[in-house]
Amino acid sequence: MAHRWGMVVDLDRCTGCEACVTACHAENNIPTVGAAEAARGRAMHWIRVERYWEGEFPEARLTFRPVLCQQCDNAPCEAVCPTYASHQTDEGLNAQVYNRCIGTRYCANACMYNVRFFNFFHPQWEKPLQLQLNPDVSLREAGVMEKCTFCVQRIKAAKSEARAEERELVDGALQPACAQACPAGALVFGDLNDPESRVARLSESPRGSKLLEEYGAEPKITYLQRQGWHEPDAQ
C-alpha cells in the first residue's frame, strides 16, 4: 500500500521553543531575508509557532501552536494553480514544483493556513554562508512559491535506503527536520496508512482535531489539544 504521510502535533507538549523553525531553515535552504524585508512581511518560515493570548493580566494565558503546511487531501492550493506547480503526489504530499511555478501567488491566497511563502527576490547567502546549504534541496529563484515539503528529500532518501537494504521503512526512523529537532516530542511524523504507526494511532486520539476543519480541506495534520489540570482522585 502507498504511504500517506501525516503528522500529529501535540499542543500539550509544545513549549514554543521554535527549535523546529531553525531546524527547518537549516534543512530546507530557506533564505533569511533580513530586517528590512522582514519588516515588509517577507520573512519565510515554513513552520511557525503561532501564539495567542487569552484573557487579561493577571489571568492572561498563552497558547502555542506550530503551523506548517497541513498537506491537505483536498488542498485548495492545488486546484487554483494554473500550471500544476502545486499538486498532490501519490503519497499525499502537497508538492510544489518550483520549476513549474510562474508566480501567480494564487495558491498562497487560496491556502487558509497561509503556509506558502514567496521568493520576492533572489535569495542571497552572503559568502560563505552558502556552504551551509543542504545539497539535497534545490534552491528557489525569485518569483517562485515555496512551502513545507514534509522534508521530501528525507522521505526519498529513506525509501531508497530501505529499498537497497530490502526492508520496510521503520516507523519513527524517518522524520522531517522539525520533528527530529523538537525536544518535547510535540511533532510526530509517520505513515497514516500504517495502522500500527505512532502517528496513525495518535491521530485517533480523542484530543485530536484538524486546524480550520470547517473548510473541508482534509488536512493530514492532527492537532492534539492542550489539556487542563484536573485534581486527581484523592490519594
Binding site: V21, H25, V33, R51, L129
Partner: peptide, 24 residues
C-alpha cells in the same frame, strides 16, 4: 542570521529589541 530572523515565541519580534509593557 537564523536566530536574528527567528520570531520571538512571545512577541514574534525579529531583528530588534522591544519593551514589554502592561496594557493598563
Amino acid at each position: 542570521p537564523w536566530l536574528q530572523e527567528l520570531p520571538d515565541p512571545m512577541t514574534t519580534a525579529m531583528w530588534c529589541s522591544w519593551v514589554e509593557i502592561n496594557a493598563h
